[in-house]
Amino acid sequence: MCHLPSAVRRLVPAVFATAIMTISGTGVSGAAAQPSSGPPSDTVEFARLTWTEIAAAIRAGDDTILIPVGGTEQSGPYIAVGKHNIRVAALADRIARRLGHTLVAPVIAYVPEGGTSPRTSHMRFPGTISIPPAVFTGLLEGAAESFRVQGFRRVVFIGDHGGYLTSLKAVAEKLDHKWKGTAHALYVAPYYDVIATRYADALRARGLGAALGKHADLSDTALMLAVDPSMVRQDALRSAPLPGPDQGVYGGDPRPATAALGRIGTDMQVEAAVEAIRRAP
């Protein structure tokens, strides 16, 4: 049996649905949807553009590119392992639209998550993917350099996971020094920092716990619900045991989390990132 990739399986019904079939007296004729003659009018996603469209965008002033960095890790029994990737992609899209003249690179989903022999940190659980720190920093540098030589004048790292933020900062500082006079590299710390500060304070002001801004806790779960509720297993969340490292949960009780509470945090993240990038060179 031929096993098609899931993306192809999802595409097949849409292709057939767009074919217009008519039956005439002389037989059956069909007209399938024609390929697009240009880029999607509202996209900021680098991966959805052709190379000629990217070149044209750079010539037209799109001089900034965001590199969203996620991670693939366990997040308790009720949040899917792609949490950081889905969230940072969605928020980077919002940030790019607010900034203007900005594109969003593909998400970096492979990051350091702990050791494999012995298994440490999140690697103690199934569902986590980890790469060595040196491989990670090499990946960041290579991706950033790829964008610089194409003509982007600002390469901006946005990290959704606390475990590698020092690496993002170090790589950005290294590249900014190396590129001096030709381009800038920037790490946007406020995007992540606001979660454990202003957002945690906003939740506490609503009487919602003290241990916030952690992992798979109330704040983390609410942020995921705000971006993509399908990533949260509601039945498992409602019956979640008390948080603990044996469940991969660190912080306060996640059960009161709602999408409305999460939107408070995602709005703060977008605002903080936009402000920081606008202030930067």
Rank of each mutant, 00 (worst) to 15 (best):
A200P: 09
P229M: 03
D176E: 05
A196V: 00
G248R: 00
G252I: 04
L186D: 04
S230C: 01
A222T: 10
D220K: 00
L186N: 04
R206M: 14
G252L: 04
A185N: 12
Y192F: 14
L237P: 15
V194S: 05
G181M: 07
L203C: 14
L186E: 02
D253T: 12
G209I: 02
K174F: 13
I195F: 06
Q234F: 08
V249M: 15
Y191E: 06
I195W: 10
T221Y: 00
A202Y: 11
A240I: 08
Y199A: 04
Y187D: 15
A222W: 03
L208Q: 08
V227H: 07
A210G: 08
L212F: 11
Y187W: 15
G244C: 08
G213S: 06
G181D: 09
Y199T: 00
K180V: 07
A183N: 01
G181I: 01
Q234L: 13
R204D: 13
V227F: 10
P190I: 00
T221Q: 01
P229D: 01
V188I: 04
G181P: 11
D217N: 03
R204K: 15
Y187K: 07
V194G: 07
T221P: 09
G252Y: 09
V232G: 06
A200Y: 07
D253Q: 14
P229E: 04
V194K: 00
L186S: 00
A185R: 03
Y192P: 01
H177V: 07
S230N: 07
G248D: 05
G207Y: 13
K180L: 08
K174C: 11
Q247Y: 14
V232R: 01
D246H: 12
A226C: 12
D246A: 09
D201H: 15
Y199S: 02
P190T: 01
R204T: 13
A216Y: 10
A183W: 08
A236K: 04
D217C: 12
D253F: 14
V194I: 14
A196Y: 06
W179H: 04
K178Y: 15
V194Y: 05
Y191N: 06
M224Y: 07
A185F: 06
Y192V: 00
T221H: 01
P245H: 06
A216V: 06
G213R: 01
L186V: 11
G244M: 05
P243Q: 08
T221C: 08
Y187R: 05
D201T: 11
A211S: 05
L208H: 13
T197R: 14
P241I: 03
L175H: 14
A240K: 10
P190V: 00
A226M: 07
R233T: 02
G207I: 09
K174H: 12
P241Y: 09
H215G: 11
